[in-house]
Simulated scan of single mutants.
Amino acid sequence: MSVILKVFLLVFLGEFIAWIGESVLLEATYALYLRLFYPTLASRQKTLKSDVLTTKAELLKTSAQDQFAKWAKLRRSVDKGLGDLEKLNSEMASVRSGFSVRFKAAIWLSTTGLQFFVGWWYRKTPIFYLPPGWLGPLAWILAFPFAPRGSVGVGMWQMVCRRSIRVGERLVKEFASPAVKTTPVQNPPVNASAEAKAKKDS
């Protein structure tokens, strides 16, 4: 794969992730991660919540004075369920925290980190050459950082790709959003007889 395409795809990946949103990707990936590596945690949490809510509803219907033994048993069951649920929530929060750190590190490495590495690795490689004398003395700017004079360097190519993708994204959003149609305000229909009467009275 050519350098010009590698750089473009890396920049596109970074912009695509930014467009979707890291938090959205984190939620979707975390749900998949739970299903693959902790399949019982989510189901246990759901079952425990349901049990606690059912028992609590039954407790509220039970009179503490008339049915004290049943009420006390239900109360102990609710307290135990809430304690178990709190421990499970704490365990899931720990799992989520560890996953979030690894996920964000992977996203950074696969986008920004990789772009830095590619920029450094190909820092002296010309992406493509410009026609001779095209920009005159300003041609060295396009060779940023260390490409030969008269060529476009990897750093400048990254900037051009990023800018072009953002402009394209903005155009797509503008065309995709439904056009707001404004209807002109019309005057209410005039009642001819009422108008004639008004003239006559005046």
Rank of each mutant, 00 (worst) to 15 (best):
L109R: 11
L25A: 05
P39Q: 08
L26W: 07
S100T: 06
P137G: 01
G119V: 00
G153M: 08
A192P: 14
V185Y: 13
L135C: 02
S94P: 02
E15Y: 07
F117G: 06
Y33S: 08
F116N: 05
P178T: 02
T47G: 14
T47F: 15
A198V: 01
F128S: 08
F103R: 03
F37W: 13
L138A: 14
G136I: 08
S177I: 02
P137I: 08
D201F: 04
T54R: 10
F117L: 15
K61G: 07
S202Y: 12
V95Q: 09
K173P: 00
F16N: 01
A64M: 02
K6N: 15
P188H: 03
L36W: 05
K200V: 09
T62E: 13
V190A: 08
S23T: 11
K70I: 11
L59H: 11
K80L: 11
T54P: 02
P131T: 06
T183Y: 14
V172Q: 12
L60G: 14
S202F: 13
T112K: 03
G153P: 08
D66A: 09
P137V: 03
T29W: 01
K56W: 02
E22M: 00
R35P: 01
I20R: 10
G168M: 10
P137D: 06
P189D: 07
Y122Q: 10
W120D: 13
S177M: 09
G81F: 05
L5Q: 12
T62H: 09
R166W: 09
G113T: 03
L85M: 02
G168R: 06
D51C: 07
L53V: 12
A176N: 12
R96I: 01
F8M: 04
A18G: 11
P126L: 14
C161S: 07
N187Y: 05
G83I: 07
W121T: 09
L135P: 03
S2T: 13
Q45L: 00
L48E: 04
E169P: 00
Y33N: 08
F16Y: 06
G153D: 07
Y33P: 01
T111R: 03
K73D: 15
G81A: 06
R123I: 03
P132T: 11
G155C: 02
E91A: 11
I4G: 05
F117V: 14
L10N: 14
S77W: 03
G168D: 12
E91C: 03
S193I: 11
K200D: 10
Y122N: 12
A106V: 06
V24K: 14
W71R: 15
K173T: 04
I165G: 10
F128V: 06
R166S: 13
L5F: 11
R166Q: 15
L142T: 05
K49Y: 04
A196W: 15
L26Q: 10
F8C: 04
Q115A: 10
T54K: 11
L171R: 04
F117Y: 14
A69K: 13
S110H: 04
G133T: 13
L135Y: 12
F103K: 01
G136R: 07
K87Q: 01
K73L: 14
L9F: 06
I127G: 12
S177H: 09
T182P: 00
T55C: 10
V95C: 03
A179D: 06
A106W: 08
L53D: 14
V185T: 14
A31L: 03
L85T: 00
Q65G: 00
L10Y: 12
D201S: 10
L53T: 12
S2K: 13
A139K: 09
K181W: 02
